[in-house]
Amino acid sequence: MPEKFPSPAGWTPPGAQFRSTGGASRTMAGALVGLLLTPIGIAFAARGAAGTRQWTILGDFSDRAGSTFEILLAAGLFLIVAALAAYSPAGTIIAGLVWGVLPGIIHFIFPNDTFRLLGDLPVSADMHIALFQWLQTGFPLIVGILLVGAGAAATFRRR
């Protein structure tokens, strides 16, 4: 259907000179947000999973609400990182690779060294154990692959 009122030659809408695609800045901002939120989500997921393990050990004396809240908060953070793919697919892909796929693969290749590597992190002893157990279950690899998939889906959707 032809335009009812065609624009004059050389005409641009007001404010067009201030509009930019911002590709590099979007990618940098998305990568930074993804790289910051993902390890926070991992920490909450690992602590929540360690807390749920206490449910079977301590029964009613364990903190069920706290660990449930940590797991839900981690899921929310991972959802934000996955939704970040709509803004910057590269940020979601980078976060998934750095904090999920690579640690998961490294653990499968060098399982004896990962506990030592996690021991070098400046966190409490309980957090070291929680992170190692979360890594041992394979969830970082699963979360990483899902984040990479979300970023790839957003990339293919744009084309």
Rank of each mutant, 00 (worst) to 15 (best):
M1E: 07
P2F: 07
P6Q: 06
P6K: 00
S7T: 13
S7G: 03
S7V: 13
G10M: 10
P13W: 10
P13G: 14
G15I: 09
Q17S: 15
F18V: 11
S20R: 04
S20P: 03
T21Y: 01
G22S: 01
G22E: 00
G23L: 05
A24H: 03
A24F: 13
S25C: 03
R26T: 02
T27V: 11
T27A: 11
M28F: 15
A29Q: 00
A29E: 02
A29P: 02
G30I: 09
A31G: 09
A31V: 15
A31C: 14
L32T: 15
L32G: 01
V33M: 12
G34H: 06
L35C: 15
L36H: 06
P39Y: 08
P39V: 15
I40A: 10
G41W: 03
I42H: 04
A43R: 11
F44A: 09
A45Y: 03
A46K: 05
A46G: 08
R47P: 04
G48D: 06
G48K: 05
A49R: 04
A49V: 07
A50I: 06
G51I: 12
G51Y: 04
G51T: 14
W55C: 09
L58S: 13
D63W: 07
A65H: 02
G66T: 05
S67C: 13
S67V: 02
T68Y: 10
T68H: 03
F69M: 12
F69D: 10
E70M: 04
I71C: 06
I71V: 15
A74Y: 05
A74E: 09
G76L: 09
L77H: 00
F78M: 12
F78Y: 15
L79K: 06
L79N: 03
A82T: 00
A83R: 11
L84H: 09
A86F: 13
A86D: 14
A86E: 13
Y87W: 14
A90T: 14
A90H: 08
A90W: 11
G91A: 08
G91L: 04
G96R: 06
V98K: 03
V98P: 04
V98T: 11
V98N: 08
W99D: 08
W99A: 07
W99M: 04
V101W: 04
V101R: 10
L102Y: 12
L102P: 06
G104W: 00
I106S: 02
H107P: 07
H107T: 11
H107L: 09
H107R: 12
I109R: 11
N112P: 00
T114I: 11
T114D: 02
T114S: 14
F115A: 11
F115K: 07
F115H: 11
F115E: 09
R116T: 14
L117T: 09
L118V: 14
D120C: 01
D120G: 06
V123P: 00
V123C: 01
S124Y: 00
S124T: 08
A125F: 07
D126S: 13
D126W: 04
M127S: 13
M127C: 02
H128G: 06
L131E: 02
L131K: 03
F132G: 08
W134P: 05
L135N: 01
T137N: 12
G138P: 01
F139R: 05
P140H: 11
I142R: 08
I142F: 12
V143F: 13
G144V: 05
G144F: 03
I145F: 08
L146I: 06
V148Y: 10
V148Q: 03
A150K: 01
A153V: 10
A154K: 11
R158T: 10
R158I: 04
